[in-house]
Amino acid sequence: MSLTDTLSNLKLSSLVPNSELSNEELALKSQWETLTADGISDDFITELNHFLSDKTYIVGEKPTTGDLTVFKAVFAKAGQWSKGDISVLAQHRHILRWVDLIQEEADVPVDQRIVLNFDSELPREVKE
């Protein structure tokens, strides 16, 4: 299966339905879905990385369709970053961490996954 096919057939077994999300979570999820549809700019990437710095998933404690939508849009880029040097890894660390989690939960075939060196020695991030 090609990567495009894999991504379009992506399914998460433990997907949280919209009915279980709070209004606030729904709004946030839809905001990220809209931003993703607008195109993946550098600003989008910076914002997403910052957003994911304090969140395990896009909203709530389990994956939602919001995670899938954004994941599909950034997966190829994440593959490039994962091969980058320390500064590229550090700059995208939160997206990479999240992509790795979602690719596991969405059961992306092993040969198509991004590969992270979990013990890369990244400089410690200090919150401004």
Partner: peptide, 11 residues
């Protein structure tokens, strides 16, 4: 700091 580094790419 050790824990922080460990959690860079791990959820």
């Amino acid at each position: 700091e050790t824990l922080e580094a460990h959690l860079n790419f791990r959820s």
